[in-house]
Design a protein around this nucleic acid. Structure first.
Length: 154
DNA sequence: GCCAACGTTGGC
DNA sequence: GCCAACGTTGGC
């Protein structure tokens, strides 16, 4: 099993929004970064756990956990001329962008803030900190569990 | 709203 | 293939 972290702007799509989607979850569409795409397309498996991070908002940090419920398939928004994510260079035979489906798993008792992660000696070098502007990234199991434990404190 | 980081595009 | 220009992300 692999562990991941995804970023989302809660004004756009929050963990509560994901929870409202139920067990079928939501297609994680709109990722237009090759490295993030490759992680989803090549390495994400059904059952993998995903830290859900809220970015560009008042309280930035990890708010809970999601689960991969469908492995990678072509992101349909790339074919839709009316979508903000439309890509004229993508065709049905040669899709460029992929998505997975993720579903709500749990919400933390307390936010694990970016500041907390930065100041934690074992977490300060994770990809969230060292790789700016990457919205889908792997996380070491040990780091996943530290963040989960921090979020479980009340 | 500012701006640093940095991935992508396109001219050459 | 280089690299300047440009656009986006995302913290503050």
């Amino acid at each position: 099993m692999n562990y991941w972290l995804v970023k989302s702007e809660p004004d756009d799509f929050s963990l509560n929004d994901l929870k409202a989607k139920g067990s079928k979850g939501e297609g994680w569409n709109g990722v237009r970064n090759y490295q993030a795409r490759n992680f989803m397309r090549d390495d994400m498996r059904v059952g993998d756990l995903v830290l859900f991070y809220h970015s560009s908002c008042k309280s930035v940090g990890v708010v809970g956990i999601a689960r991969v419920v469908r492995a990678a398939y072509p992101d349909p928004t790339q074919f839709d001329p009316h979508s903000a994510y439309y890509d004229a260079k993508a065709t049905n035979n040669t899709p460029r962008w992929y998505q997975v489906d993720i579903a709500f798993e749990s919400k933390f008792n307390s936010l694990v803030s970016l500041q907390t992660i930065k100041s934690h000696p074992e977490l300060s070098e994770i990809a969230l900190i060292t790789r700016s502007r990457l919205s889908v990234m792997p996380i070491e199991p040990a780091h996943f569990h530290i963040i989960k434990a921090l979020g479980s404190m009340s």
